[in-house]
Amino acid sequence: MIQKKICMIGAPSVGKTSLVARYVYSLFSEKYLSTVGVKIDRKDVRVDGQDVTLMLWDLAGDDEYQPLKPSYLRGAAGYLLVADGTRQETLDHALDLHWRVTRSVGTIPFVLVLNKSDLAGQWEIDPAQIKPVAEDRWRVLRTSAKDGSGVEVAFSELARDILRPGQDRRTIPDPA
């Protein structure tokens, strides 16, 4: 079976670990995130008739105390760039992370995830802010680790992009 390394990247508290927890049963506890800075889980999925094992590297939220370690990105086949839809600054942070990741490992498939879609009333990210990246053919999805919406799709889309890198991206859903 094909294995692929996928990284979860984003600012602290955007819900990366919750997305993984919604997606898989974790073998290791979250304490690894605060110690080693990464927690790894595994998820077997089937994409377009092909079985693939996703090794999910949940990287600790990037901050001044625990900056993103480029060594953890090495060998990644793709990544989920996670931002908190209720906090504008996490999107900026995500865009910065994307630039740093690209500089570290080159251009690889990724999906921008705007998490916490269940908190619609507190939503801060304006669709206009997404427009530039959408025009750059980024895949942007809204998810909720709380109710599970969009989670499976986010991982599946990323896996599909990894396995079929030449395919056209589909319509970008309106984050609003």
Partner: peptide, 20 residues
Amino acid sequence: HEDAGVVSGMLTAIRDFARD
């Protein structure tokens, strides 16, 4: 033994962590 794939990843991560 635990999931060998996950252990393999964590072992790699821990070594990276130590090196960094």
